[in-house]
Design a protein around this nucleic acid. Structure first.
Lengths: 206, 206
DNA sequence: GTGACAACTTGTCACTGTCAAGACCACTCG
DNA sequence: CGAGTGGTCTTGACAGTGACAAGTTGTCAC
């Protein structure tokens, strides 16, 4: 690879190197030159494929949403009970924080990612579609009154909040002398409470 | 001010300039030299007060949690109904995203902020204490079975998720042809659904 | 073989954060 | 009042950064 002029698969090598750099050093210490070094090319080679830093990070964010789609789709494929599908989908969502920390750091960062990128928008909507589908199916299968859009927003906000707050909640747990939770248990407890709300929704479908 | 050697209130001038820079350009384009320029001092002057970039951003994050404590405390001070206190507290929390965008961008960024900073930890726990207090009071006043810790986690995750997802939810709303929501209405809908869950919790206090 | 284009390198520049040394200022104490 | 001390700031320097422009290499179609 180092004795050929053309890399052969540079876009993917750069994305992979970017994931490693962000995972190890955090997004705040990201460096395009370090990524290029790890991919074994000159520091301006990424410009051809991604334009600038924003282009590369936007590509990573898109990959993040695609991954989210994949893991949530896979999680619910093994379940038939609608309530359990909601829980395993939530667990898959929150598992991104530990399994794909680099993508997680990038996905909602409108300060470094182009929010108007077409591929990114499509990937985001698609991922949201899984969540909305699971929620809507639950409501339909149990003949519930809750608004699927509102319930989906609650679910999404909750799991996304858990992605951000994970370490903080563990700290609070330790500080207040409670037994440590696994992420899965925490997600299950919260989706159970959400399910309670959705099943007993007092709102009309106005 | 520019004709005296000593600035007189440099730490606050730097924090204020940092807020402006982050608000205008996003955290991803933060520059310590730009902050120093705006404060009218040399580019290394901030080092004496904050050490390095991490120190300044950590100070901002701490300020963010203190502000969160202030706005949530103020919001609930005008309410006596426990359920309404939860909603207005949620609205106050989410309003940080528009009223204090710079602080919001910094508060949970463990890649650029020192998560072990003592002042930051204290401020974070204190802000969480407001939320937990409101939830616990609600549960006690209505004689509910829900676990206050679990319910607090749900509330916190939800409002924090809304802070991150705000623009995305507006986009989805527009894409699916639904009428636009104000943030306050959205928060109210979600806290209503959470309240439904808390009031009908199927979990025991194990 | 030639021309066009994609993919990459090299050279350069302004800007960045940090380090170290120096300068300025305010206060205390003899 | 003057010296000493310590806090506060400036200056100078350096390695590293992203982006721009020009140049080089390689592949493919004709």
């Amino acid at each position: 690879m180092t004795d050929r002029y053309h890399h052969g698969d540079l876009p993917n090598a750069l994305r992979s190197a970017a994931v490693d750099v962000i995972t190890e050093q955090g997004l705040g210490h990201f460096s395009l030159r370090e990524v290029a070094r790890r991919a074994g090319v000159s520091h301006t080679a990424p410009a051809h494929h991604f334009g600038d830093v924003q282009g590369l990070l936007t590509s990573l964010a898109t990959q993040g949403f695609d991954t989210l789609y994949d893991v949530t789709t896979a999680a619910i494929a093994g379940e038939t009970d609608p309530a359990e599908r909601l829980t395993v989908m939530g667990q898959a969502y929150v598992s991104l924080a530990t399994e794909y920390p680099a993508h997680c750091q990038v996905m909602f960062r409108t300060d470094v990612v182009d929010p108007d990128d077409a591929d990114l928008s499509i990937a985001g909507m698609r991922a949201y579609g899984v969540l909305h589908g699971v929620v809507a199916e639950l409501i339909a299968s149990e003949g519930l009154d809750a608004d699927p859009d509102v319930a989906s927003e609650l679910c999404w906000a909750t799991v996304q909040g858990l992605v951000v707050l994970g370490p903080k909640l563990e700290l609070i747990e330790a500080r207040t002398g409670r037994p440590p939770s696994t992420t899965s248990d925490r997600v299950r407890r919260l989706t159970d409470l959400m399910l309670d709300g959705i099943r007993h929704s007092s709102a009309s479908d106005a």
